[in-house]
Write a protein that binds this DNA or RNA. Structure first.
Length: 884
DNA sequence: CAGAATGAAAT
DNA sequence: ATTTCATTCTG
């Protein structure tokens, strides 16, 4: 299809035949092109005129060209994305959970599960999402009246442009700031050309956006005012979060370097990530140690670090110094208790350190990276500064919140967040660029040092290490390596640099504009700190220790939590020395991802956001929460919120603010959406197998079961439990807003009989889904043989199965279930069972089987991992079920 | 980059 | 009815 379309595109006109008018799309695209123009200046001329003109100018042909051109600019960012539908919202909100439960599961699998959940979801709850989606859409439309959804075959057009991601950006508006822009035809609003300035697109940022919000919330005051920054730059955004800083950094880099800088940025970003990881890890380690043994450990770490340092290179010095200082500071802080003074001092120290580091870093780096003189120098600075900043933020927070688990989560988040996303992007890019060199196979590693693999790889390593749980020590060791690598790999770096550009670029541009004028870098950091501190406040539970386990949990080591630190350290050393320390990347990766992204990031972020709302702006929240502020959506109107003044002065800002607000609101709303724990779904599924919509259902979610996730989930569970042990649903925000809500949900979900069974009309999408699912399902479930069986069964057996299932489940649910589930999961690990639609998904069968097995007592085995040995038993069971 | 899911929108 | 695309991330 696509291909054909594309071809058509060329011919375009004629064919149009069925397909869609590509032209339209084209018209829109031009808008994107504008960005370039716009970016030239910020003045606000919002005029639609420009848009229109541009559009016109572009004409059909222009479009393509523009697109191509845009590459540089990174059209991608600009485009406004169409609003998410209810399901997507749901996915966004719950994906992390799913992932947590099923770390191994890939996204697709997660998506399927989500679909299952969605299917099962109580109509009421669903409605909430639907409503939210609708609101969102309405707001969006208001903001961009002219927005059209999809031109259809645009991609093909773009496709030609190799660099940009064709798909994402196509039409949309100019990025974040202006959603209005997009309105191609109407263009009523004034759009801001400023695209460049805009912060990173919240949308693109994805989870990161949350961070921003959190930051804002923490600050509490939208007004924040641009004490530091000029009027134009929206202070909020700047201050908003580490993310912001990150963006700035990148932007700065870009400024320095010009085109090439981009590369550096990428590096810097990578570095930052790496550092962050290390730092965070280090901190954690330290804290945990402190808690446990207190300071003694810290010394150890230092020693270790030193040793590494020697081996590795100068690069470490900064880190080390930093770490040590941190450690010291922390100690002092802890000792004192949590004095604000201490904190301050700490922060100050940090700042100093940072500054010092910055100063120093360049030198060292330069030495190492002689190859790239200037570039390197710049780059390093940024990276370090960034990392240092980040670290700082983390540390204080931890201190403050030692006690609260949530706090920990939060703390981790920022770091995590940044890492994952950027990482991805970078990876991708890097991959893209590199191709030739190494495919970005981070894994291999032995060579790391020697060869100049890419920065990315190094980062990955770090991440992996983190994921593994080796963190503390390894980090230290790793970081340096990475750095070294990077440095050494100047070549690679260059290559790498490209990839990051695009993404970074946009941000950079924006950032650069704002910052360019100032020396803001320096000025901002302080703000940032303050922000971070504020964030921290909310912190809840301390548990540095817990935190560790969580992260590490992922793959392998739940068992060895206590002793981890040392052993790992030793391991780390060995690894380092041997140089081969790598474990399975995948495992690491997966773990890391999971850990960082899912757990830490989103969850913590959300929590953060929520807290921020509560603490800072309870009052505020109320206003916004109720409904979307139209204003927010339309950047024009912005006025309502306190920031009006700014707006007036500068439209740009307004736009930014508007966008920000928009996002903010969106975030709020989004956060306010109920989040359900897997347990909930499990229950639902089990007890009420019927849910299935038309086709069916979701009866099975063996995997999901609360315990099913096994270690990881259990870890998280603490989280849940904290909130509501019993209740399945946990909504962070809700607490504040609607306490009752939860309760309501819980009951409803589980038991709802769901009369709806058949009535629902199959929508096209559904149909397709049904079709696919059946097939997929079968295949996947297939732990083995099941697949076929499932397929056959699909239609009729559901009832029977349902019946059977419920019984079993009920019986075993409580205790045994968990085991069963686990077993099931493990077994099916690969196969993500719960495909959506199949009535009785194999998963269900599997579950049943598992249960039976359990009864038999077999279940123990399955755990072994992928081991599919269990399948055998299942099969029989399944059959039996089917027979019933 | 494809793809998994669902749904709104556009064709 | 059918096709896009939104989000998220892995392979």
């Amino acid at each position: 299809m696509k291909g054909s379309n594309r071809n058509k595109d060329h011919s375009a006109e004629g064919e149009g035949a069925g397909k869609r008018p590509k032209r339209k799309c084209l018209q829109w695209h031009p808008l994107l092109a504008k960005k370039l123009l716009d970016f030239s200046e910020e003045e606000e001329e919002e005029d639609e005129e420009e848009d229109i003109d541009k559009v016109q100018l572009l004409g059909a042909d222009g479009l393509e060209q523009d697109v191509a051109e845009t590459e540089d600019d990174e059209s991608p960012e600009q485009r406004a994305r169409r609003p998410m539908n209810a399901f997507l919202l749901f996915c966004k909100r719950h994906r992390s959970l799913v992932r947590q439960e099923h770390p191994r599961l890939d996204n697709r699998g997660a998506t399927k599960i989500l679909a299952d959940w969605w299917a099962v979801l109580d109509p009421k709850e669903k409605q909430k999402y639907t409503d939210m989606a609708k609101e969102y859409k309405d707001a969006f439309m208001k903001a961009n009246p002219g927005y059209k959804w999809c031109p259809t075959t645009n991609k093909p057009v773009k496709s030609p442009t190799p660099t940009v991601n064709p798909r994402k950006k196509l039409w949309a508006f100019p990025s974040d700031s202006s959603r209005d822009l997009p309105s191609p035809k109407k263009t009523k609003t004034e759009e801001m050309p400023q695209l460049n300035f805009g912060m990173a697109d919240p949308t693109q940022m994805g989870g990161l956006s949350m961070l921003l919000l959190a930051g804002e919330h923490a600050l509490g005051t939208p007004e924040i005012s641009s004490s530091t920054s000029h009027p134009d730059a929206p202070s909020k955004q700047c201050q908003a979060s580490a993310l912001f800083q990150f963006a700035e950094i990148s932007s700065n880099t870009s400024q320095l370097g010009g085109a090439e800088p981009v590369k550096r940025c990428g590096k810097s970003a990578l570095f930052q990530l790496a550092e962050m990881c290390l730092a965070s890890e280090g901190v954690k380690m330290e804290e945990s140690k402190l808690i446990k043994a207190k300071e003694a450990d810290g010394g150890r770490i230092k020693e270790l670090e030193k040793g590494k340092e020697e081996r590795e290179i100068k690069m470490e010095k900064p880190d080390e110094a930093r770490l040590q200082k941190e450690a010291d500071v922390e100690k002092s802080a802890k000792e004192n208790g949590r004095d604000s003074k201490e904190l301050r001092n700490f922060e100050e120290l940090r700042m100093d350190d940072i500054m010092g580091i910055k100063m120093e870093d360049p030198k060292d780096i330069k030495k190492e990276e002689l190859e790239e003189d200037q570039k390197c120098s710049h780059f390093p600075d940024f990276s370090y500064s960034a990392s240092s900043k980040i670290i700082i933020s983390d540390v204080p927070s931890r201190k403050d919140h030692l006690c609260h688990p949530h706090g920990i989560m939060i703390i981790e988040d920022p770091t995590t967040l940044n890492k994952p996303e950027k990482l991805k992007k970078k990876k991708k890019k890097s991959k893209m660029d590199r191709h030739g060199n190494d495919k970005s196979t981070p894994k291999k590693t032995c060579k790391k040092r020697q060869s100049s693999e890419s920065d990315i790889e190094s980062v990955i390593y770090t991440i992996e290490a983190v994921a593994k749980g080796d963190w503390g020590i390894e980090k230290l060791g790793e970081t340096p390596r990475k750095k070294v690598r990077t440095s050494s790999s100047g070549k690679g770096s260059i290559l790498d640099a490209k990839p990051p550009k695009k993404k970074v670029k946009s941000r950079e541009k924006k950032m650069s504009k704002e910052k360019s004028s100032d020396t803001t870098k320096e000025s901002r950091p302080p703000d940032f700190l303050s922000i971070s501190a504020s964030k921290n406040i909310p912190g809840e539970v301390p548990e540095g220790i817990k935190a560790e386990p969580l992260t590490p949990t992922e793959d392998a080591l739940p068992p060895s939590l206590p002793g981890q630190a040392k052993p790992e350290d030793s391991d780390c050393h060995r690894k380092i020395e041997t140089c081969g320390f790598r474990k399975s990347e995948r495992s690491c990766k997966g773990a890391l991802y999971k850990t960082l992204v899912s757990e830490g990031m989103l969850t913590s972020l959300r929590a953060n956001v929520d807290r921020g709302k509560r603490s800072s702006g309870k009052g505020n929240s109320s206003d916004q929460e109720g409904c979307w502020n139209e204003e927010s959506w339309t950047f024009n109107q912005i006025g309502t919120s306190g920031s009006k003044k700014f707006k007036k002065t500068k439209p740009k800002e307004d736009s930014l603010l508007g966008s920000t607000k928009l996002d903010e609101e969106f975030e709020k709303k989004f956060n306010s959406l109920p989040q359900y724990s897997p347990v909930t779904f499990d229950r639902k599924c089990v007890p009420v197998p019927r849910k299935k919509k038309k086709t069916g259902s979701m009866s099975s979610e063996p995997t999901k079961t609360s315990k099913g996730s096994g270690d990881k989930w259990s870890n998280k569970q603490f989280f849940l439990d904290a909130i509501h042990p019993t209740e399945a649903i946990f909504s962070e925000d809700k607490n504040t807003t609607e306490p009752a809500y939860k309760v309501k949900n819980a009951p409803s979900i589980p038991n709802t009989p769901e009369p709806t069974t058949m009535q629902e009309p199959l929508v096209g999408s559904q149909k397709r889904k049904a079709r696919k699912t059946k097939i997929t399902h079968l295949v996947r479930t297939a732990d083995g043989r099941v697949s076929p069986a499932g397929g056959t069964l699909d239609d009729k057996p559901k009832e029977q199965l349902q019946r059977s299932l419920p019984k079993v489940t009920e019986a075993g649910c409580n205790d045994e279930c968990s085991h069963n589930r686990e077993a099931a999961e493990t077994r099916s690990s690969t196969p993500e069972m719960p495909a959506v639609s199949a009535f009785f998904s194999l998963a269900a069968l599997a579950e049943v089987a598992a249960m039976e097995n359990v009864h038999r007592g077999q279940r123990s085995t399955p755990l072994t991992h992928d081991g599919q040995p269990k399948e055998m038993p299942q099969a029989p069971v399944l059959i039996s079920c089917a027979d019933q």
